[in-house]
Simulated assay, not measured.
Amino acid sequence: MATKLMSSSSIACLFLVGALLQVVSAVDYDVGGDFGWNLPPNPTFFSDWTRNKTFFVGDKLVFRSKSSESHDVAEPERQTDLDGCVKPGITLSTSAVLSISLDSPRRRYFICTIGNHCNAGMKFSVDVFVNPNSALLPPPPPSSASSLRFGAVLAAAMAGLFFLLTI
C-alpha cells in the first residue's frame, strides 16, 4: 500500500497553526526570573526585570520567594503609592508561591510591605495589554479541568488534521 507524502503547503499549514497557537497562549512569568521575589541586589532590579517584557491579558505573575526571609505582595492603586511605598489595605502572603492573573488591560503595581523591602527595591509596575491575536482562539476555559479538556480536544483535532493530510 502506497502512502502519499505531505505536500509542502500542508506542512506549512501545520506550522502556521502551531505558530498562531503559540502567539496567543498565556505566559506565566516568574517574578524576578531565577532570582525570585527576594530582597534585590539593587533598587531597580525588578523594574529592570520588567523592562523588555510585554504583558498581556491572561498572563500570570508568579511570586516565589527562595529565602527564609518573609515577603508579601501588595497592589497599590497609583504610581505615587508605588513610588512612596504606600501600603494598600489588602496584602497577599507569599508563604509558598503566589500567582496573580493579569485579567484586564491597565497598569498594575506590586510591592512588598514587609520592613523596608519596598524602599530597597521590592516594587515594580507592569502595563497589561490586550493581545491583538486573542480573537483567533476562544477565551480560556474557566477552570483547570476545563483547560485540560480544551487541550485534549485541541490535540485530537490537530492529530485528525495531520491524519487527513497524510492520506
Score class of each variant (00 low, 15 high):
Pro41Lys: 15
Pro41Leu: 14
Pro41Val: 14
Phe45Cys: 08
Ser47Met: 13
Ser47Asp: 15
Asp48Cys: 07
Trp49Cys: 11
Trp49Tyr: 11
Thr50Lys: 10
Thr50Tyr: 07
Asn52Trp: 09
Asn52Arg: 13
Asn52Glu: 15
Lys53Glu: 15
Lys53Cys: 08
Phe55Gln: 07
Val57Gly: 13
Asp59Glu: 03
Val62Leu: 12
Phe63Gln: 10
Phe63Arg: 11
Phe63Ile: 13
Lys66Glu: 04
Ser67Val: 11
Ser68Val: 06
Ser68Tyr: 06
Glu69Arg: 05
Ser70Met: 10
His71Cys: 08
His71Trp: 05
Asp72Pro: 06
Asp72Lys: 11
Val73Gly: 07
Pro76Met: 03
Glu77Met: 05
Arg78Pro: 00
Gln79Trp: 07
Asp81Gly: 05
Leu82Ala: 06
Asp83Arg: 01
Asp83Glu: 11
Gly84Tyr: 02
Gly84Gln: 09
Cys85Ile: 01
Cys85Arg: 01
Val86Thr: 12
Lys87Ala: 08
Pro88Val: 10
Gly89Arg: 00
Gly89Asn: 08
Ile90Tyr: 14
Ile90Glu: 15
Thr91Gln: 12
Ser93Met: 04
Ala96Glu: 14
Val97Ile: 15
Val97Gly: 00
Ser99Asp: 11
Ser99Pro: 01
Ile100Asp: 03
Ile100Ala: 08
Ser101Glu: 14
Asp103His: 01
Asp103Glu: 11
Ser104Asp: 15
Arg106Phe: 08
Arg108His: 03
Arg108Thr: 07
Tyr109Gly: 02
Phe110Lys: 01
Phe110Pro: 07
Ile111Val: 09
Thr113Glu: 07
Thr113Leu: 07
Ile114Trp: 08
Gly115Val: 00
Gly115Asn: 13
Asn116His: 07
Cys118Asp: 12
Asn119Trp: 00
Asn119Cys: 00
Ala120Asp: 14
Met122Lys: 04
Lys123Gly: 05
Lys123Asp: 04
Phe124Lys: 01
Ser125Ile: 00
Val126Lys: 03
Asp127Pro: 00
Val128Tyr: 08
Phe129Glu: 11
Val130Asn: 05
Val130Arg: 02
Pro132Lys: 02
Ala135Gly: 03
Ala135Trp: 08
Pro138Ala: 09
Pro139Leu: 12
Pro140Gly: 06
Pro140Gln: 10
